[in-house]
Amino acid sequence: MTKYIPTAGQTVGPFYNYALMRDGENDLTGGGKASGETVVIEGRVTEGSGAPVRDVLLEIWQANSHGRYNHPADDSDRGLDENFRGFGRTLSDEDGCFRFVTIKPGAVPAEGAGGSSVGESAAGGRTGGGNVWQAPHIAISIFASGLTRRLVTRLYFPGEDANATDPALSGIPEGDRERLIAKPGDGGGEKSIRFDIVLQGEGETPFFEE
């Protein structure tokens, strides 16, 4: 019997951008069409020497403002938004800096299945239907030259009560946990947050097993 073992990863290398990058893919709102609160995410990627890393491929994946993923495995009754796919891509510039424009995702259930929706009355407790709910968050994939395969992390939002009970955050020791919570940004009028990524060393970003 043939065994099907997942294919090994290999570095994305330095020369991918003409193949993978397309204009506008760092704006998940489709130029403001998606419903929900627009948020600008800015950050910088640095390596162990403290130097910025250019040409890092960053991909984000998230639920819409109702907490619904645009994917068949999310068959909940939380509302779909036809203007929001939930996937974005960008790459860091010469200074290691990157930028996404998206909407703030709603809360989603913690378990793998679709789960029940957040009822009106459950909005505070986030335990509707016996499910644990995750704090609003964005999943991040990181690929770069010098990374043999994908690194995975998550971005959480500042000032969220639900951060205290989020199952993924709770698995990270205090002191490290805060590094996954974005800082308020300096984007003026728009809602703006800052999420720096340190690949190695002092202030290293917590990463998750793939």
Binding site: H71, D74, F87, E111, G171, L199
Partner: peptide, 21 residues
Amino acid sequence: VRSPNKPQYKLPRTLTEATGP
């Protein structure tokens, strides 16, 4: 200089991971 020093944390498998573009 680009590999993390710390081991990776365990990520609970949630709807976030079970979905994708």
